[in-house]
């Protein structure tokens, strides 16, 4: 049993790695995608909406195969890890773009008006006034999504990333103890999500108490 657990734990860095990297990609790329989606230019707005819809409606496993076997099988060679990060990162970007859009809508017009009246420049309005509020509003939803992503990162195992699910499959094939192995794997996923949930809880309630957004 100890050996089984050790094998599963060997997958943790890969699961965490895929999740953290894909989330980081999504958090950053979510901004330009959100900007497209909210653009004044109708054609850009349509493009943004189309991208978000595409990324959100195709199943992650199809995306990953498309990137790994489709694009990766062509001229560029992608490692399973990179392909998983790119695929899940793009899907995350689409989700985050929608989160940011909602957060923008939650910032009252009065904030922009005050910033204008105080003569703040456009970059100052964004970085001093809008962005900090956007981040605070986005945190709870983003954290919920991050926990989902931790679970969904299991799809990376289908490309051969040696994450928790991949290890669980290998071990169960070798030991024929499917029930025990997958129960242990479930437990590892659970233990990994708890700190994220707690951190998000703590962050939101601290910010809430201070600024009551």
């Amino acid at each position: 049993m100890n050996d089984i657990l050790m094998m599963l734990l060997a997958g943790v860095p890969w699961t965490v790695g895929v999740t953290v990297c894909a989330f980081a990609v999504g958090v950053v790329l979510g901004f330009p995608l959100c900007a497209l989606r909210m653009s004044q230019v109708p054609s850009l707005r349509v493009l943004g909406a189309a991208l978000v819809l595409t990324l959100r409606s195709i199943p992650p496993i199809v995306w990953l195969f498309f990137i790994f076997f489709g694009i990766g099988g062509g001229y560029v060679t992608l490692s399973p890890f990179v392909a998983a990060v790119v695929g899940l990162g793009l899907i995350t970007a689409a989700q985050m773009a929608e989160v940011y859009r909602g957060a923008f809508a939650a910032i009252p017009d009065g904030q922009y008006e005050a910033a204008h009246v105080l003569n703040l420049s456009a970059p100052q309005r964004f970085f001093d006034v809008v962005l900090p509020q956007l981040v605070r509003i986005s945190i709870p939803t983003a954290a919920t999504y991050a926990i989902g992503l931790l679970k969904d990162s299991a799809v990376a195992s289908t490309l051969g990333v040696a994450d928790i699910s991949f290890q669980a499959y290998q071990v169960s094939q070798q030991t024929f103890q499917g029930l025990g192995v997958y129960s242990a794997a479930a437990l590892v996923y659970l233990v990994l999500s708890v700190p994220v949930a707690l951190a998000s809880r703590w962050l939101s309630s601290t910010l809430q108490r201070r600024i009551s957004l």
Binding site: G110, A114, V117, D128, L213
Partner: peptide, 16 residues
């Protein structure tokens, strides 16, 4: 704008 200050009904302080 530099010469004019404005105060709103809803205060509009920066909450963060």
């Amino acid at each position: 704008r530099r010469r004019i200050g404005m105060v709103f009904q809803s205060f509009n302080l920066f909450p963060h």
